[in-house]
Design a protein around this nucleic acid. Structure first.
Lengths: 162, 162
DNA sequence: GTCAGTGCAAAAGATTTGCATGCGA
DNA sequence: TCGCATGCAAATCTTTTGCACTGAC
């Protein structure tokens, strides 16, 4: 498990290797991203960064998250609601998948070796060599079933925000 | 396996039940959708329908695909490239998942009972009652590995179109 | 000093919506 | 006839881009 500081160092090093510059904006955005809860939308990240540095533009957030993706420090996720979200990637950490509550939007991560293995087998049977995959399970979480689920936070479109 | 005619009948019936009208546009869009190869984008569908009925607007395609989703005749898919696509849903047909070739964009469908069962177990362990799920495997298909893969068709954005 | 990086605004792409008109029941 | 459905255009949202200016190296 990488620490925030380690990730930040990876980012700085990657910039240097690519001949790109370190700037206050990039640093602030990367730091906000590394410090974040998982599964942030661009808008979440923009708001977080603005708290620290109100001089950051929306475009720079997009440009920087693209850099973070290239450095494999951010993973882009397209969940069923169509919203694009990003999460901290960690090369040392095991791959994981998501279970998402249809009612409250809660996202729980899990990983399961026999599942991974089964997927490899299925792909091989179809003639594919697997590079990566995405699995999302959708259902109702225990809290919601028992009627004590917190009301789901929604964005201006009324969509659930995890 | 439902035939096109059966799906069309389901659609007609659903409209009637909801107190909605059958119109030439809705019929043409539904027919084009049912007749289609799988995984159409809105734009694909729009172009198909225009071949038959050039008097159909983009908005109506969006409005009608939304109806088809409500009738569970269309499934919305958000693949990793971010493009929204729709496929024919069939309640009588087994649920299936996708393997997607990273190189040529080919999409192969499969279904596997032990996989489904394993997912149920994992979800239950986490306190979820599963409603549905999405699994996409990404890798390189045999044809591409052996260097005889067809060049992938791409849209105006340069994205692979399955 | 140079040139990549930035903010802003504008553009571009995807989807939705308001409204006057059309047409199915 | 009465409303729902439609086409169009305009509005919204998301993401990208052009450009003049700023700041890292």
């Amino acid at each position: 498990m990488q620490t925030r500081a380690e990730r930040f160092a990876v980012f700085r090093r990657a910039l240097k290797e690519k001949g790109l510059k370190s700037t206050a904006q990039r640093d602030d955005i990367a730091r906000a991203f590394f410090a974040s809860h998982r599964h942030m939308s661009i808008d979440d990240l923009y708001r977080e960064v603005r708290k620290v540095n109100p001089r950051v533009g929306y475009a720079t957030v997009y440009r920087t998250i693209k850099l973070l993706k290239e450095c494999e420090l951010a993973d882009e996720q397209h969940f069923a609601d169509g919203q694009t979200r990003y999460e901290n990637a960690d090369r040392e950490e095991e791959h994981h998948d998501h279970v998402i509550c249809d009612r409250c939007g809660r996202i729980v991560e899990f990983s399961d070796d026999s599942l991974e293995q089964l997927q490899e087998e299925i792909a091989a049977r179809l003639g594919f060599v697997l590079a990566h995959h995405r699995l999302e399970l959708y259902g109702i979480c225990r809290e919601c079933r028992e009627g004590r689920g917190a009301p789901a936070p929604t964005d201006r479109m009324g969509r659930v925000r995890p």
